[in-house]
Amino acid sequence: MSAPVLVLSGVTREHRQGDTVVHALRGVDLAVHPGELVAVMGPSGSGKSTLLHVAGGLDTPTAGRVLVEDRDLAELSAAQVAAVRRRSIGYVFQDLNLLPSLTALENVSLPLELDGTRGGLARRAARDALDEVGVGHLAGRFPDDMSGGQQQRVAIARALVGPRRLLLADEPTGALDSTTGEEVLRVLRARCEAGAAGVLVTHEARHAAWADRVVFLRDGVVVDQSGPAAGAESLLTAGGGA
């Protein structure tokens, strides 16, 4: 198996609240390889979102290491971490944060242009990313003229645009109906199968089931994880209907 895109090693994150120390994460180990989609499940307050923020360089662990494409984020300057965030990591959040005054194409090409890519190249890459998630025909539309599902696809295209290999999604299907949510998961899954590494935070078992592995967090600790079973067929014959 090729080297992991994301490695969390003994990651602990504490917050101080007055005199008390709250452990959001306690000694979490996690490696996500290219081609793999990992779901993180747990009740509210279990540390799911903190895990995603730490993995994406938006928050810093109190102890432990975070490596993105072999680079230890703690050893990088703030500017270098920002560059890793722009170039290597794509985020999809529940609130889409699309800029209403920009078209779908401009929303997607913006991060590349901010990173110094020339306009023509950036727009071409943005067009490819929109095509990949099936909304290439909406390139000229403004967010307000699109459905929730279409906007979420644009947000995913923006997360995927360029050579990013780590995809972090926090409840990406939150605001969508179940059929549209499933389409979004299909897109995430396809992108991971094409070589990206994905982490999906969700509280919906049905959505987590799209992942290759499901990690269960409880009080900041990984308590268990589920991987693929021996074979799908065994499931159906082994009393699946009982």
Partner: peptide
């Protein structure tokens, strides 16, 4: 939960 989740992944 882990067992049922694995089953759910296979069904998906």
């Amino acid at each position: 939960r882990t067992g049922t989740m694995t089953a759910l992944q296979e069904l998906t």
